[in-house]
Design a protein around this nucleic acid. Structure first.
Lengths: 255, 255
DNA sequence: GCAAAAGTGTTGAACATACACCCATGA
DNA sequence: TCATGGGTGTATGTTCAACACTTTTGC
């Protein structure tokens, strides 16, 4: 009978003490990416409290009792900057090395957010200051607090890889954009120039990547050039065929 | 001066009370995959305690204070079955919906493990019983406890996808194997037959996927056929070019 | 007109797919 | 000797990178 089992479950839950387990905190950290002035930027905050007081870190904080992980990530991010209505958000990974936070055992679930050209951050919350820093600075500049340099590196690798086989690049662009705008996203994130003519054809040949609005830009480019067609993001999320990264510059020797 | 800052950090940590935060438990769940008799199988345990007492679930449990997440996953798995010295293990994702466990707030970090033809599980630990169940059963059979059906589905999607562009398939095979063995892994995981001759050529053409041992199988196949070359897993982890899945058979109206 | 950017044509290389075929082995 | 599976040859079509070229705009 199910009633007996239900009674046992109810009894078990009533006697259950959540504090009996070793205290482990769960936080979210957010790698927020945007493109500002042709540079890929990541949102950083300067820590206002120990540990790592005064150092750069990723925005993040404790998960509250009633929210899910993605919700916590968006809440923490919204404390620092204004967000568009539906930014792209995805979970990256959980980081849980025992000594990654000196205060106590903390498992952090890292998330990645992409949005078009976000405004200057506010620096509210428990951060002393918030700023967009270019990934060039962060990737080879001074280290971030905790294991945030590793989290950022993982996020960038994931982002670079997902441009190849998903329509993620459109998350960096406004509702309407040109093929050259889209190429700019790929060139900025991958950090290398692409062949404009072939890129153009490839983008239009992937079904569902972009949809033609029928309109053109108001004027040509700043330094001349003809007016470009305007597109909006298409319905496809997975790209077939993929837009593969050109092979990394050969480290000498033939093949 | 750094001394002042260090003093402040030490003072802060001494006054820090880890129990001040809402109790959140962190667990690991493991999707262990192996191939037994030409079928892709996932390790399941029958729960010995409420909640979901008597139902199938994934092996898993609480993370201990001194171990990292991957270590916890391997420990939980080793309680149920014998493991090879270095099985392939990777983190899948964190699952943290507020109501996913009726006892308390539990964030679970799911992992995926692949190993060649593992033995029958022991069913130790806090499980009443452990067994290899085919993914066919699990994917469309009765539901698993908690959100474990979703976790399993995510793991299978990840595994199927990673066969395309990584050398993950060799994790299902012993140290030495034939091209046909490797093809068997792809066919089993993808659930569809592949063109033997073209697969053969493609595998050998991908640099670093397999390395020729120079030896042959002791005898031909069970139903005749010539002896096959033996290969071992090559140094490559990413595959260039990728071994893409053949296009899915056209969706005939419903699914 | 000239430079710059959008967009098209074309070609040879790389790659995928299909089919034919030979080779070696078990029964 | 025949069925079975391992392994190779080759034809055909598709995708891709490179380069040349035309079109349209700002200055």
């Amino acid at each position: 009978m199910e009633t007996e089992r239900e009674r046992r479950e109810a009894e078990f839950l009533a006697a259950y003490d959540p504090r009996a387990f070793a205290p482990v905190a769960v936080t979210v950290d957010v790698v927020a990416l945007t493109i500002r002035g042709g540079e890929l930027c990541v949102l950083c905050v300067r820590r206002a409290e120990p540990p790592f007081e005064g150092e750069w870190a990723l925005p993040g904080g404790f998960v509250r009792e009633d929210e899910d992980l993605a919700g916590a990530a968006l809440r923490e991010l919204a404390e620092e900057t204004d967000l568009p209505p539906t930014p792209h958000l995805e979970q990256l990974a959980a980081y849980g090395a025992p000594e990654r936070d000196p205060r106590m055992r903390v498992v952090s679930v890292a998330h990645m957010v992409m949005a078009p050209d976000l405004p200057e951050p506010r620096g509210g919350g428990d951060a002393a200051e918030a700023a967009w820093r270019t990934v060039a600075e962060v990737e080879q500049g001074e280290a971030l607090a905790f294991d945030h340099a590793r989290i950022t590196a993982d996020a960038l690798e994931r982002a670079r890889s997902k441009l190849e086989y998903t329509s993620l690049a459109t998350a960096f662009l406004p509702a309407e954009f040109t093929v050259a705008d889209l190429r700019g996203v790929y060139e900025t994130v991958w950090g290398r120039p692409l062949h404009a003519a072939n890129f153009h054809r490839k983008v239009l040949s992937v079904p569902g990547l972009v949809t033609d609005t029928g309109r053109l830009t108001e004027s040509g480019g700043a330094r001349g050039g003809r007016r470009a067609r305007l597109y909006s993001a298409g319905p496809a999320t997975a790209l077939h065929p993929a837009l593969l990264r050109p092979a990394a510059p050969e480290p000498r020797s033939g093949r």
